[in-house]
């Protein structure tokens, strides 16, 4: 049950987008997200949506898969739209009981919906086409300059990649502990939300203890294999920019210019 989360998981296939350097994709995603917040303009959103569609086509990820990935956030999306619709004052077009739906509200909700959907899909695009290892690797390189202000960049990247490696293991463990407790008569299903949350405490305690034990073992195994931080370390898969990355950066610049032009003059 815990494993149905498809949001942001790597989708394996061969495409030009998969092959891009993770740094390019990280910067690209950032630019895309910024472009969504620069203007509240329907044309900009249409342009951003078509750019995303183009990316989806290049990435060879089935569009249905992308849409399926939105499932977990649909509730959040609907909720935000609903609130926006209800609480924006303006010209009333529809009254129901004591609630007024305004023209501005509908407009605001539509903009917000488009922005959120594109935002989530855009960042999904990055995680779907990049393996977690390459992603952390890219992040480490991009944050490299922050080492100057004493930020432990290598350590943060290492922590991220270890966390990613242990997520499935800890999920299995949670499943096992829950089953063991179910077998002894524990009840995770009935009662209200507070009662349900309370019944999870006996699951969390052994889970934490086991996580600490694993961390201890892993630290020892890493030390045994000469791990001593990022100093003097070489890389098995060093990142290298290729001509395709240059092209991608050019496309990004063109995209941003187009967004600014559309936002200003349309």
């Amino acid at each position: 049950m815990l494993r149905d989360i498809t949001l942001g998981q790597y989708y394996e296939t061969k495409s030009k987008l998969h092959e891009l350097d993770p740094r390019t994709k990280l910067v690209g995603t950032l630019i895309y997200l910024i472009s969504l917040f620069m203007f509240t303009n329907a044309y900009v959103y249409i342009f951003a949506a078509s750019f995303l569609l183009l990316c989806v086509l290049i990435s060879r990820i089935p569009p249905t898969y992308m849409i399926k990935g939105m499932k977990p956030v649909i509730f959040l999306l609907v909720f935000t739209l609903f609130l926006n619709m209800l609480f924006t004052p303006g010209e009333v077009i529809f009254t129901f009981w004591k609630i007024n739906i305004t023209k501005e509200g509908v407009k605001q909700a539509l903009y917000m919906g488009a922005r959120l959907t594109l935002l989530i899909m855009g960042s999904n695009m990055m995680t779907l086409t990049t393996t977690p290892t390459r992603l952390t690797n890219g992040l480490e390189r991009l944050m490299g300059p922050l080492k100057l202000i004493k930020l432990p960049v290598h350590e943060i990247a290492m922590m991220m990649s270890i966390a990613l490696r242990f997520i499935p293991i800890l999920m299995d463990e949670t499943d096992r502990i829950m089953k063991a407790q179910l077998a002894r008569g524990a009840d995770f299903e009935s009662g209200n939300l507070i009662k349900k949350a309370k019944s999870l405490v006996p699951v969390l305690v052994p889970l934490f203890i086991s996580a600490f034990r694993r961390a201890n073992d892993l630290a020892m195994a890493m030390e045994a294999r000469c791990y001593h931080g990022g100093k003097g370390r070489t890389q098995m898969k060093p990142l290298k920019y290729r001509p395709a990355d240059l092209l991608a950066y050019l496309v990004l610049i063109l995209y941003m210019t187009a967004v600014v032009l559309i936002g200003k003059y349309l």
Binding site: S161, R165, R214, D217, A224
Partner: peptide, 14 residues
């Protein structure tokens, strides 16, 4: 070199 008991807790790479 050293090989430990628990196979899950000594593999670092993904």
């Amino acid at each position: 070199g050293m090989v430990f008991q628990n196979p899950d807790n000594q593999i670092i790479g993904q």
